[in-house]
Design a protein around this nucleic acid. Structure first.
Lengths: 122, 122
DNA sequence: TCCATATTTCAATAATCCATGAATCATTGA
DNA sequence: TCAATGATTCATGGATTATTGAAATATGGA
């Protein structure tokens, strides 16, 4: 991920509705959600959600596909991972303290003892 | 980190000059850099850098201290780690795929065998 | 105290972003 | 083809953000 894309990704995530959309789509999974459903869940107008969805798509954080009459949006897991990576690398570059802080506190980066071979960290 | 702070942090990082400042301060380390030096390195006017520094401080990503005539800014590693964590948790919540992607590709989350006890973390 | 340095604050302007509602486009089924 | 559905686009107005240069504030040394 280049800086330009990171900037637009950060901009995309800096708006309440858009952050909520991304969180919702991440939870929704690869099947995604139709624009109308998203608008309903967010409690915003169709044209407004369309505006934000376009912004998110421009950043690459979500993808769209047409499905009959609906346009279905889904989270781009790759882009999200790339963004985390970008942030981590910038941080790690200067100070390992940060990545340690991340690894330590939430279990997200900690190797899960329950998981077996094929684990990423191993 | 609550959502409100994540939003302002993303907003802070969504501006080219500010992202550059953060990267520079992370590399600079805990000693930080004086505002004037930052302005010089970024190639922007003192008043403009002051505007952006205030924005970054408001988000909590950097901290300031006075040192004689200078005001010295430094990266807030805690806040940066919290932000990465926020992004990771939101991602991980819905899809482990993302954290896997992050862990796998850059070695940032991999424990470094070369490092020995007494490293920053200890 | 007076001056120079380092930085911020302020005011004004330009630029960008967000919300709204009307109009338009694409798809489906009668 | 016509009407209905689902969604986007467009134009507008209001709000926030960014840039600039001048003025103000704080510190340290002569």
């Amino acid at each position: 991920m280049d800086e330009r894309q990171a900037l637009t990704s950060f901009a995309a995530l800096s708006q309440e509705t858009r952050l909520a959309i991304v969180r919702t789509l991440v939870v929704a999974g690869p099947d995604g959600l139709a624009a109308g459903l998203i608008a309903e869940r967010m409690g915003v107008s169709p044209s407004n959600v369309s505006f934000h969805l376009k912004e998110l798509e421009r950043s690459g954080l979500i993808a769209q596909r047409r499905e009959s009459r609906s346009i279905v949006y889904s989270a781009s897991y790759d882009a999200l991972a790339e963004l985390v990576k970008f942030l981590m690398e910038d941080c790690c570059a200067g100070h390992p303290v940060i990545r340690e802080g991340v690894q330590r506190s939430d279990g997200c980066c900690k190797p899960d003892p329950a998981r077996n071979e094929g684990d990423v960290v191993a």
